[in-house]
Design a protein around this nucleic acid. Structure first.
Lengths: 175, 175
DNA sequence: CGTGCATTTGATATACTATAACAATAAGAG
DNA sequence: CTCTTATTGTTATAGTATATCAAATGCACG
């Protein structure tokens, strides 16, 4: 499936370079391919098994840069021909989340593909309340501030979940 | 209900001053009273109605510094004698959250009392994975880092949800 | 190439979290 | 007091997630 904006390269020229990849017109098939290739690699390296179901769920999660719910994935799996039940998709998601290939957005009860599965990290996300697209980011200064604050309050950190809701530039421009 | 640690003031001497109030032995009745008083005040100031159900739910949320689930609150309300149904407690919680008196922790599907309802703010929380106690904090440097990052990525922020999972000093000391 | 063990998947049932919709009641304005 | 609005009661259902046990598959080892 070719993204139509690719036929309009002029549109790209008006975007400033800070616009996150997920919000730019792009060849999304390449996104999916890259994500699957990275998944194959990390799984091979860590001795994890990217079975057909898991691979398919990952592919489905990557169909867009929007978070997708477990039951949406379930429907998509059923459309494939498998008559999948909830535990099937939740197990695949558990695997993918633990393998660092997918993130769960707690505020939305939904899942997005991880941008950078090759480097372990924790979740920081911007979510557009209008178009629902999600941008994952990693801020050293946010991490340092959070670590310092936690240490001051006597906490050892094990996980972080930072979800910011707002409006992306596209949606703001569109009023 | 008197907190037994109050009879052991020596214990207080060993705690460093950075220990959050929620983790220190303290007269928790005073906590509840203060929370309810602050709630009365904000509601009066903003023309909101702190009805008996809402007040009772707030009181129940404040029974501890641990997050409490909606259905736990429901049971507690039923124990009071009212035979409450889910919408009752969810409506009360919606009201309290919107009034800034209670925060919802998305990662736990649970609710905690807000420390500082008199000053509007957004949620930043440390959650101890062992004892489940929650410490709310509010870091200017975290906020600045998040704002800057969001702006760089073209986002206008409307809400933030920062939940850090870890282990508090008490639980670490207890191995 | 079996055999045995561990991992994964299938299938059923159920738990947990949250809201829609409409009726009944209570509170506040005039 | 009466009108209007906000709140609560009630029933039903939607949406999210897991427990449990059985069947199938993958894989290491002899």
């Amino acid at each position: 499936m070719m993204v139509s904006s690719l036929t309009l390269p002029d549109a790209l020229m008006t975007l400033d370079s800070n616009t996150p990849a997920a919000l730019r017109p792009h060849d999304h098939d390449a996104c999916i391919d890259a994500a699957l290739a990275a998944a194959e690699q990390t799984c091979k390296e860590q001795g994890l098994r990217l079975t057909p179901i898991r691979r398919r769920v990952l592919e489905l999660v990557w169909q867009s840069h929007r978070p997708v719910g477990a039951y949406e994935l379930l429907e998509a799996l059923s459309a494939d021909g498998r008559r999948a039940m909830p535990p099937t998709v939740y197990r695949a998601l558990d695997f993918l989340v633990n393998a660092g290939l997918v993130h769960r957005l707690a505020t939305l009860n939904a899942f997005v593909g991880c941008h950078d599965p090759l480097h372990p990290h924790q979740g920081q996300f911007l979510i557009c309340g209008d178009c629902r697209r999600v941008v994952e980011f990693h801020s050293g200064s946010v991490n340092r501030s959070l670590d310092r604050k936690a240490r001051n309050l006597g906490f050892e950190l094990t996980e972080q979940n930072v979800e910011l809701l707002g409006r992306c530039s596209d949606c703001r421009d569109a009023h």
